[in-house]
Amino acid sequence: MSWMDDGGFEVKTFARNGVTMARMSFRTATGNYDVTLSKTEVQRIRRECGRILKEMEASK
């Protein structure tokens, strides 16, 4: 099982002052790390992931 499958990484939404945000959590051997993201930041991450996936497919 990978660290993503066994709960080492997750993204959840939550509301703060009426604004929906996302919390990205990483669990590692050295601790837990939480990053709060706005909708715009999630969209940027999505674009970057798409770009990286295209590069990985092109290098096959």
Results as ranks from 00 to 15, higher is better:
residue 34 D to I: 03
residue 17 N to V: 01
residue 16 R to V: 01
residue 58 A to P: 00
residue 32 N to P: 00
residue 23 R to I: 05
residue 46 R to V: 01
residue 39 K to D: 12
residue 39 K to I: 06
residue 58 A to S: 12
residue 25 S to P: 00
residue 46 R to Q: 11
residue 20 T to N: 11
residue 5 D to H: 09
residue 29 A to D: 15
residue 57 E to K: 14
residue 28 T to I: 05
residue 45 I to D: 05
residue 46 R to W: 05
residue 4 M to C: 05
residue 30 T to F: 15
residue 37 L to P: 03
residue 32 N to M: 07
residue 28 T to L: 10
residue 7 G to P: 03
residue 25 S to Q: 14
residue 21 M to G: 02
residue 58 A to F: 02
residue 29 A to W: 06
residue 58 A to C: 00
residue 26 F to G: 05
residue 23 R to T: 07
residue 34 D to L: 05
residue 23 R to A: 08
residue 43 Q to F: 02
residue 29 A to Q: 13
residue 49 C to Q: 08
residue 25 S to L: 09
residue 51 R to Y: 02
residue 7 G to R: 05
residue 27 R to I: 04
residue 35 V to E: 14
residue 40 T to P: 00
residue 54 K to A: 15
residue 57 E to Q: 13
residue 25 S to C: 07
residue 37 L to E: 03
residue 45 I to Q: 11
residue 50 G to Y: 02
residue 9 F to S: 06
residue 34 D to C: 02
residue 4 M to N: 09
residue 49 C to M: 13
residue 14 F to W: 07
residue 57 E to L: 07
residue 37 L to K: 07
residue 14 F to G: 03
residue 11 V to C: 13
residue 33 Y to P: 01
residue 41 E to A: 07
residue 5 D to Y: 05
residue 25 S to T: 15
residue 26 F to M: 13
residue 40 T to V: 09
residue 18 G to Y: 11
residue 16 R to C: 00
residue 30 T to E: 15
residue 2 S to P: 00
residue 7 G to M: 08
residue 47 R to S: 07
residue 59 S to Q: 08
residue 40 T to W: 04
residue 1 M to I: 04
residue 27 R to T: 10
residue 46 R to T: 13
residue 14 F to H: 10
residue 57 E to Y: 03
residue 16 R to Q: 10
residue 15 A to V: 11
residue 38 S to A: 08
residue 18 G to I: 05
residue 2 S to V: 01
residue 31 G to I: 07
residue 53 L to C: 08
residue 37 L to C: 08
residue 52 I to L: 15
residue 46 R to I: 01
residue 19 V to L: 11
residue 33 Y to M: 10
residue 52 I to W: 10
residue 8 G to Q: 07
residue 16 R to W: 05
residue 5 D to R: 10
residue 46 R to N: 10
residue 46 R to L: 01
residue 52 I to K: 09
residue 21 M to E: 12
residue 31 G to H: 10
residue 45 I to H: 07
residue 32 N to G: 04
residue 33 Y to K: 14
residue 31 G to V: 09
residue 45 I to N: 10
residue 35 V to P: 03
residue 41 E to N: 05
residue 24 M to W: 05
residue 56 M to C: 12
residue 10 E to I: 00
residue 9 F to M: 11
residue 8 G to S: 07
residue 40 T to L: 06
residue 28 T to A: 13
residue 34 D to E: 14
residue 28 T to M: 09
residue 13 T to M: 06
residue 20 T to W: 03
residue 27 R to G: 02
residue 27 R to V: 08
residue 51 R to D: 04
residue 2 S to T: 14
residue 2 S to A: 02
residue 15 A to Q: 15
residue 36 T to F: 08
residue 55 E to V: 01
residue 5 D to E: 14
residue 41 E to V: 02
residue 33 Y to E: 13
residue 31 G to T: 10
residue 43 Q to Y: 03
residue 16 R to D: 07
residue 41 E to C: 01
residue 24 M to P: 02
residue 55 E to R: 14
residue 28 T to G: 15
